[in-house]
Lab assay of single mutants.
Amino acid sequence: SEEEIREAFRVFDKDGNGYISAADLRHVMTNLGEKLTDEEVDEMIREADIDGDGQVNYEDFVQMMTA
């Protein structure tokens, strides 16, 4: 549901600035027990970053979650 997606976005957007940065993503993945290299984190950001601004905004996140 849209509310679940919004809630998930809030979990990833640690600093609440409306964007998921590589640092935000790394933090959440580490908490989930996933040890990722910087390259892996950057690749995840690139794949999710639809508009190419280097971070994942809510619209990018929705597209990723509903793809």
Rank of each mutant, 00 (worst) to 15 (best):
M44T: 02
L36M: 10
M65L: 14
T66K: 11
L25A: 15
E39R: 11
K35A: 10
M64E: 02
M29Q: 01
I5K: 02
F61S: 00
G33A: 11
E3M: 10
A22K: 13
V41Y: 09
E4Y: 13
E34I: 11
E59I: 07
N57I: 06
A67V: 10
D42F: 08
V28K: 00
M65C: 04
G16H: 08
Q63K: 14
L32D: 01
R6K: 05
E4A: 12
F61D: 00
Q55V: 05
N17C: 06
N31A: 14
E43G: 10
H27N: 10
D53A: 07
N57L: 13
L32F: 12
D60E: 12
D60P: 15
E39C: 11
D51N: 14
A48S: 07
N57P: 10
M64A: 06
R46G: 07
G18I: 01
K14Q: 07
I45N: 02
D15K: 09
V56K: 00
D51T: 13
L32I: 10
V41K: 04
Y19L: 11
G33P: 08
D49H: 15
K35M: 13
E2A: 14
V11I: 10
V62Y: 07
R26P: 06
I20A: 01
I45G: 01
M64K: 14
D42K: 06
D60W: 15
R10F: 04
I50D: 04
N17K: 09
N31K: 13
D13Y: 01
I50P: 09
Y58D: 00
N57R: 15
V11P: 05
I45Y: 05
D60A: 15
E59D: 04
I5M: 11
E47R: 15
E59C: 06
Y19G: 01
E43V: 09
M44K: 04
M29C: 04
V62W: 07
N17F: 06
Y58G: 00
M44W: 12
E3G: 07
T37I: 04
A48I: 12
D13P: 00
R46I: 05
L32C: 05
T66S: 09
D53W: 09
E39M: 10
A23I: 07
G54V: 04
R26H: 13
Y19T: 08
D24I: 06
R46L: 07
E3K: 11
N57K: 14
M44E: 01
A67T: 15
L25I: 13
L36N: 03
R6N: 02
M29W: 05
K35I: 10
D13N: 01
I5C: 04
R46H: 04
D38T: 09
E7T: 08
E3W: 11
I50V: 12
T66W: 10
M44V: 04
A8Y: 07
N17S: 11
G54H: 05
D38L: 14
L25Q: 00
A48D: 02
L32H: 05
A48L: 12
N57C: 13
V11K: 14
I20P: 00
Q55S: 08
R26E: 05
G54C: 11
A8R: 06
V62E: 01
A22I: 15
Q55R: 13
K14G: 04
A23G: 08
E40D: 07
R6P: 00
D13H: 01
V28P: 01
M44P: 00
K14T: 11
D42L: 11
F12S: 01
D53I: 10
E59K: 07
D51F: 11
N31V: 12
D42Q: 06
D42Y: 09
Q63E: 05
F12Y: 12
R26Q: 12
R26D: 03
